[in-house]
Design a protein around this nucleic acid. Structure first.
Lengths: 369, 369
DNA sequence: GCCAAATAATTCAACCAATAAACAAATCCG
DNA sequence: CGGATTTGTTTATTGGTTGAATTATTTGGC
């Protein structure tokens, strides 16, 4: 029992059950009927009917032709998420890349706008103005499709504090940038670390594994920790800084001030220069992660994905040697399935995920006339 | 919204609100009145009254003299957890130590039984038989106090699989021991890692910090990760194996088969032999933890607690140098407040914590005539 | 071609739990 | 002593789920 510190009233029951029904549809491979939902959730058919009516009226679900079925009986009405309901705006700002995309409730990316340009040459305000331009294009495209944007999320390669303040983004040269104010969108905006959002993108696109470590190897190295389908953000929101885990205590000096950080052995140039060293260093750092967090699946993304075959064996050797539980349960290594868009797609996914997790709030939103 | 995969009905509402009221009383420094609970939770006074009646009838709460108050108005009735309600049996088996204790609902340790003997000389069945003896003494003492035991929890220095199977306990020499079967208690039994339960013990005894890393330095080194008042058990239940985090990749061979594990530099003998080396190695490994999990508080327990003053500066130096966010938010080091009993007390705490988290299930338990 | 069986979805009375508002109880203060 | 004040309880109402009965729509047997 999760005794969170808020009272529960009947309306919370309805809110919970609305979410339960919506998620059941979302996680279902086929198009479930009301009866199937009833069986899957344990709610009665009467209740499911009432909830589904609300979700259809709020254009979160639609009735479709039923999934083919054999045998007698009245045919079911198939239910599915609407592509015409709310959508999410995913944004990304990176060293040489600016992007915006729109995903609909089903998770499909409907529009995608990307600009390649070196953001390090621009002051934050200018970079964010350019991003606002992309966001406006994406919003217009969404509106043309009849998609109402429920919010936006932005991926940045840096440390983000509550309220969307970017404390440090070393590779952009940013420090203490108030992103929501400078971006000035008229949508609720979430700002999060690039690796975190990429991990969530991978969660949505992957094979359903709910618990894994996503490692993103760009110029810096970041990681997103996904536990049971949810992102672990750490005590203060700055988890996953695997790039600065010490691999060789007296090794190469790092620009962070310490010596022997993983980033110096498995960053983009290091991988190109010496893949074997990179793999071994990565393996040592990943062993520490697994010993501490006991994650059974590690997904290599960003710049690591194309190098996967070159890195795999070296990493694996260290894992087998250094992970205490390696004999009891193996650790699986996988390349990421999404490419450069992972973080942007994850960002859009966060927005629609929020609607799917709490449809009641969305249905009760103050409606624009 | 936590859309867990189960339906919610009205009775769940009541269950949740019962827990909410009970926890409000438990977390309150004074003895709150019904009206104070109403104000704290947002439930109406009428609802709180009804819930409190149930909790009093089930002897989880008692009415006491009110906390002194000034001003007009009918005096309040103070509410507090009953010391005569359900209790928890905490058990511990360790290398040279066997223990059992009884904690009442308030968290107070009412009885404590300890045997010092080297368990490595005994086969698991014999050790567990001795523990059963202690458990029986503790149960008898609890019954004499009118405490009904809600369950038992056992701390073991090893890796525990679901169902209470101890896969490996290297320092006991155990492998694949079916503890619940061999122990044969007539209570629901939870088996968990010693460091995990010690971390929870520290959570209950400490200053209220809800998120921290507990490091237990015995012959082996274990850690418990506490996030927001809950234990993080990892993907498969084997988190916190900090003792086998690599500190020096080509360093001293460890009995686990790898080289340069923390345990070889900061285990009990190593601390005694070279405290500076131990502190530095510990600092390197803890930096990795903080970079990965962003924990702001680290509690040093077990054998580290008495050595705290000797270790502190060395650890701190590495943390300041190697933690990426050290400049943004400091990492606090603290000695544990509980001594050798931490795990046993944590175990008892787990049992009463379960009752406090879900009083409805306890109230609806099948009553022994 | 029609009727029985089967499955899907809806309707309706009953029930459970929280709410709001009125009421009763017990104290303080002028 | 009486009004103000705060606590706790009582009562009618509301919201939401349940369970049973009902309606709807198909397949398959005769």
């Amino acid at each position: 029992m999760n005794a969170s510190r808020s009272p529960v009233r009947q309306s919370s029951v309805r809110a919970h059950n609305l979410a339960l029904v919506l998620q059941t549809v979302a996680n279902s491979a086929d198009r479930p009927s009301r009866a199937a939902i009833s069986a899957a959730t344990g709610l009665t058919r009467a209740t499911v009917s009432a909830l589904v009516d609300d979700l259809i009226a709020g254009s979160l679900l639609t009735e479709l032709d039923p999934a083919p079925r054999t045998g007698a009986g009245r045919p079911a009405a198939g239910l599915a998420l609407t592509p015409d309901g709310p959508g999410g705006l995913g944004l990304e700002i990176n060293v040489d890349y600016l992007g915006a995309c729109v995903a609909d409730l089903t998770g499909e990316v409907r529009h995608r706008f990307v600009t390649r340009a070196d953001q390090r040459l621009l002051p934050p305000a200018a970079a964010l103005a350019a991003l606002r331009e992309l966001a406006a294009q994406a919003s217009a495209a969404a509106a043309a499709d009849g998609i109402e944007l429920a919010g936006a999320a932005l991926a940045v390669p840096g440390l983000v504090a509550p309220g969307g303040l970017v404390r440090v983004a070393p590779n952009l040269g940013w420090q203490d940038v108030d992103v929501p104010a400078l971006l000035g969108l008229d949508l609720p905006l979430t700002v999060d670390n690039e690796a975190n959002l990429a991990a969530l993108g991978e969660l949505g696109a992957g094979d359903g594994t709910p618990t894994f470590l996503y490692v993103s190897g760009e110029i810096g190295i970041g990681a997103g920790i996904v536990l049971d389908g949810e992102l672990y953000r750490g005590g203060r929101g700055w988890s996953g800084e695997i790039g600065h885990v010490t691999v060789y205590p007296d090794g190469r000096p790092c620009r962070c001030g310490a010596d022997g950080c993983l980033e110096q052995y498995a960053g983009q140039e290091a991988v190109a220069a010496d893949p074997e060293l990179a793999a071994s260093a990565l393996g040592i750092a990943l062993s520490a992660v697994v010993n501490l967090l006991d994650l059974g699946v590690i997904v290599l993304g960003g710049g690591y994905a194309p190098e996967f075959d070159r890195l795999r064996d070296g990493i694996d050797a260290e894992l087998r040697r250094r992970v205490l539980t390696a004999g009891l349960a193996p650790v699986a290594l996988r390349p990421a399935t999404l490419g450069a868009d992972a973080a942007m797609r994850g960002a859009a996914g966060v927005v629609i995920g929020a609607v799917r997790d709490d449809p009641a709030s969305w249905l009760a939103r103050p409606q624009a006339v």
